[in-house]
């Protein structure tokens, strides 16, 4: 009986919504209840946009099976577009900020289509190289444009990214990408990862799905860029170099290619670890890189592999396990 309730879709939506609200209340309690200081609270914002970056890259990397190395380029397009918009208009925050984020996302998405159409004709390492090239070109172009502030960076962006906004965006990103992957289109995307030739033979349009997935991935990277811009209030092109793309890729691969929960956990951990290691500031990057090599050597599929977590079945199996324990105990007593 319990099984049927937990497998029921409506009930599961309710359960997930409840869990998200509880998590939000917990974060708000921790940050404004005086338990965490301002510095520690701000880390939730960093965790938030890093999760969005990692999950969106996982879509094109882990689920579509391509290897793009230019994610920071999309992030920078989104960051600059949304920052320039919010600096130009003067509206109430609850209209201006979502609109700015949306514009950032759309700008990045369009860039994704422009880059994706030629780049996705190539595969494997060549795709990696060509996206890397595009990422660097985006950075150099931003560096040389007048209205982006060039090498001095873009200053005077209003600080809009609060914990609530970032939390909302993170939840929406994960929800959209998760439901997309569970849909018919998601199965088409995954089938491309498994075998391109077989997918094409089954009537799946490779160009269409690759480009659209790439654009969605870029869109969310742009949104994350918008959050980043309105959190730091200064944009510097040198922060969006090749190393930033690699940093995001590391989050995805460490968590597990094709595991959303993996990306969420590893983005959170990899945001917090460098801060925890701050007291060993000199050694921290050395430790970080050694950690990366060791995890890869001993668990090449990433910490979570392709495992994905969902609340309903997890509670279900937990219940069953508890019931099994009680029944076994009861059986032992009867004897």
């Amino acid at each position: 009986m319990k099984q049927s309730i937990l497998r029921n879709n409506k009930f599961r939506y309710l359960l997930n919504t409840l869990a998200v609200v509880l998590l939000y209340l917990l974060i708000i309690f921790l940050t404004s209840g005086g338990i965490l200081n301002r510095y520690q609270s701000n880390m939730f914002i960093q965790i938030g946009y890093n999760i969005i970056l990692a999950v969106s890259l996982n879509l094109s990397c882990g689920f579509l099976g391509q290897l793009p190395l230019g994610h920071a380029g999309f992030m920078s397009v989104g960051a600059y577009a949304s920052a320039l918009f919010s600096m130009a208009v003067d509206l109430p925050v609850y209209i201006e900020f979502p609109a700015a984020l949306l514009i950032g996302g759309i700008a990045a998405g369009i860039t994704g289509i422009i880059i994706g159409l030629p780049a996705l004709r190539l595969r494997g390492d060549y795709l990696a190289i060509i996206t890397l090239g595009f990422g660097e070109i985006i950075r150099v172009v931003i560096l040389n444009l007048k209205f982006t502030g060039g090498a001095f960076g873009l200053r005077g962006i209003e600080k809009h990214s609060s914990i609530s906004w970032v939390f909302l965006c993170t939840v929406i990103t994960i929800f959209v990408i998760h439901t997309l992957l569970k849909s018919r289109h998601g199965r088409a995307v995954i089938s491309i990862r498994e075998d391109e030739i077989a997918a094409e033979a089954s009537g799946i349009s490779l160009t269409y799905y690759k480009t659209v997935t790439f654009a969605i991935s870029a869109f969310f990277a742009g949104v994350a860029g918008g959050l980043y811009a309105h959190y730091l209030c200064i944009l510097d092109p040198s922060n969006f170099g090749f190393m930033k793309s690699v940093e995001i890729l590391v989050m995805v691969v460490l968590g597990g290619l094709g595991s959303i929960i993996g990306s969420v956990v590893s983005a959170s951990v990899l945001t917090v670890i460098p801060e925890l290691l701050r007291s060993f500031a000199d050694y921290r990057m050395v430790i970080y890189s050694l950690l990366l090599i060791i995890v890869m050597i001993f668990k090449p599929s990433g910490l979570f592999g392709r495992y994905d977590f969902s609340l309903g079945p997890a509670i279900d199996s937990a219940f069953r396990r508890i019931r099994g324990l009680i029944l076994r105990k009861g059986g032992a007593k009867n004897k």
Binding site: V253, L257, V286, S289, M296, I297, P300
Partner: peptide
């Protein structure tokens, strides 16, 4: 140790080595 695994793990390891040498 990674020769028979997915190429992307090898790539990440290479990036890790490059990070390590730079920071060391």
């Amino acid at each position: 140790p990674l020769r028979n695994y997915a190429r992307i793990s090898l790539l990440i390891t290479a990036i890790g080595v490059s990070f390590f040498l730079q920071n060391a």
